[in-house]
Protein backbone atom coordinates (compact mmCIF):
# COMPACT_ATOMS: atom_id res chain seq x y z
CA UNK A 1 0.00 0.00 0.00
CA UNK A 2 1.54 3.29 -1.09
CA UNK A 3 0.44 6.16 1.12
CA UNK A 4 -0.56 9.52 -0.32
CA UNK A 5 2.64 11.14 0.89
CA UNK A 6 4.77 8.27 -0.40
CA UNK A 7 3.32 8.75 -3.87
CA UNK A 8 3.88 12.49 -3.58
CA UNK A 9 7.49 11.93 -2.55
CA UNK A 10 8.13 9.66 -5.54
CA UNK A 11 6.55 12.23 -7.87
CA UNK A 12 8.61 15.05 -6.36
CA UNK A 13 11.83 13.10 -6.93
CA UNK A 14 10.86 12.30 -10.53
CA UNK A 15 9.89 15.93 -11.14
CA UNK A 16 13.26 17.11 -9.84
CA UNK A 17 15.05 14.67 -12.12
CA UNK A 18 12.98 15.77 -15.13
CA UNK A 19 13.56 19.44 -14.33
CA UNK A 20 17.32 18.82 -13.99
CA UNK A 21 17.51 16.89 -17.27
CA UNK A 22 15.50 19.52 -19.15
CA UNK A 23 17.50 22.44 -17.78
CA UNK A 24 20.92 20.89 -18.38
CA UNK A 25 20.20 19.33 -21.79
CA UNK A 26 21.70 22.10 -23.90
CA UNK A 27 24.84 21.95 -21.74
CA UNK A 28 25.42 18.45 -23.11
CA UNK A 29 23.92 18.78 -26.58
CA UNK A 30 24.64 22.36 -27.55
CA UNK A 31 27.75 23.60 -29.38
CA UNK A 32 30.71 24.95 -27.44
CA UNK A 33 32.53 27.86 -29.00
CA UNK A 34 34.14 29.94 -26.24
CA UNK A 35 35.79 33.25 -26.95
CA UNK A 36 34.99 36.87 -27.61
CA UNK A 37 32.89 38.85 -25.17
CA UNK A 38 30.21 36.16 -24.89
CA UNK A 39 30.49 35.76 -21.15
CA UNK A 40 30.44 39.46 -20.28
CA UNK A 41 27.07 40.34 -18.75
CA UNK A 42 24.69 42.41 -20.85
CA UNK A 43 24.27 46.02 -19.78
CA UNK A 44 22.90 47.60 -22.94
CA UNK A 45 26.32 48.00 -24.52
CA UNK A 46 28.35 49.24 -21.53
CA UNK A 47 31.09 47.02 -20.12
CA UNK A 48 30.04 46.34 -16.51
CA UNK A 49 32.50 47.57 -13.89
CA UNK A 50 31.44 46.86 -10.31
CA UNK A 51 30.05 43.51 -9.13
CA UNK A 52 26.31 43.51 -8.53
CA UNK A 53 25.53 43.14 -4.86
CA UNK A 54 23.08 45.69 -3.56
CA UNK A 55 19.42 46.54 -3.98
CA UNK A 56 16.93 48.85 -2.33
CA UNK A 57 16.13 48.20 1.32
CA UNK A 58 12.42 48.61 0.57
CA UNK A 59 12.33 45.05 -0.75
CA UNK A 60 13.48 43.75 2.66
CA UNK A 61 10.60 45.69 4.21
CA UNK A 62 8.10 43.98 1.91
CA UNK A 63 9.57 40.60 2.82
CA UNK A 64 9.21 41.35 6.54
CA UNK A 65 5.58 42.44 6.23
CA UNK A 66 4.90 39.31 4.24
CA UNK A 67 6.44 37.13 6.96
CA UNK A 68 4.37 38.81 9.68
CA UNK A 69 0.99 38.70 7.96
CA UNK A 70 1.37 35.45 6.04
CA UNK A 71 2.13 33.50 9.22
CA UNK A 72 -1.06 34.98 10.68
CA UNK A 73 -3.07 33.96 7.61
CA UNK A 74 -1.57 30.46 7.40
CA UNK A 75 -2.39 29.80 11.05
CA UNK A 76 -6.05 30.33 10.15
CA UNK A 77 -6.18 27.43 7.65
CA UNK A 78 -6.89 24.64 10.16
CA UNK A 79 -9.46 26.88 11.80
CA UNK A 80 -11.14 27.55 8.44
CA UNK A 81 -11.63 23.86 7.64
CA UNK A 82 -13.37 23.24 10.98
CA UNK A 83 -15.30 26.50 11.31
CA UNK A 84 -18.61 24.79 10.49
CA UNK A 85 -18.44 22.75 13.69
CA UNK A 86 -16.99 25.53 15.85
CA UNK A 87 -20.03 27.83 15.41
CA UNK A 88 -20.11 31.25 17.07
CA UNK A 89 -17.48 30.48 19.72
CA UNK A 90 -14.81 29.75 17.11
CA UNK A 91 -15.78 32.87 15.18
CA UNK A 92 -15.52 35.16 18.21
CA UNK A 93 -12.09 33.84 19.22
CA UNK A 94 -10.75 34.37 15.72
CA UNK A 95 -12.21 37.86 15.66
CA UNK A 96 -10.12 38.64 18.73
CA UNK A 97 -7.03 37.24 16.97
CA UNK A 98 -7.79 39.15 13.77
CA UNK A 99 -8.33 42.37 15.72
CA UNK A 100 -4.69 42.19 16.88
CA UNK A 101 -3.44 41.36 13.37
CA UNK A 102 -5.66 44.09 11.92
CA UNK A 103 -4.30 46.59 14.42
CA UNK A 104 -0.78 45.77 13.25
CA UNK A 105 -1.90 46.04 9.62
CA UNK A 106 -3.40 49.49 10.03
CA UNK A 107 -0.44 50.67 12.13
CA UNK A 108 1.88 49.74 9.26
CA UNK A 109 -0.51 51.35 6.77
CA UNK A 110 -0.60 54.61 8.78
CA UNK A 111 3.18 54.72 9.08
CA UNK A 112 3.34 54.51 5.27
CA UNK A 113 4.74 50.99 5.20
CA UNK A 114 2.66 49.95 2.20
CA UNK A 115 3.26 53.19 0.29
CA UNK A 116 5.63 52.56 -2.60
CA UNK A 117 7.05 55.75 -4.03
Amino acid sequence: MITQYGALLIYVLVAFLVAYLVASSSQHMGPKAPGGLKRVTYESGIVPEAPVKYFSVRFYRVAMFFMIFDVAVMSLYPWATSLRSLHQAGMLRVLAFLAIVGLAFFYVWNRGGFQWD
Partner: peptide, 12 residues
Protein backbone atom coordinates in the same frame (compact mmCIF):
# COMPACT_ATOMS: atom_id res chain seq x y z
CA UNK B 1 16.38 25.06 -31.57
CA UNK B 2 16.64 25.64 -27.81
CA UNK B 3 18.40 22.32 -27.13
CA UNK B 4 20.99 23.02 -29.83
CA UNK B 5 22.01 26.43 -28.46
CA UNK B 6 25.22 27.08 -26.59
CA UNK B 7 24.90 27.04 -22.82
CA UNK B 8 26.58 30.23 -21.56
CA UNK B 9 27.41 31.26 -18.03
CA UNK B 10 28.29 34.91 -17.41
CA UNK B 11 31.64 35.84 -15.87
CA UNK B 12 31.46 36.21 -12.10
Amino acid sequence: KMVLKEDLMPLG
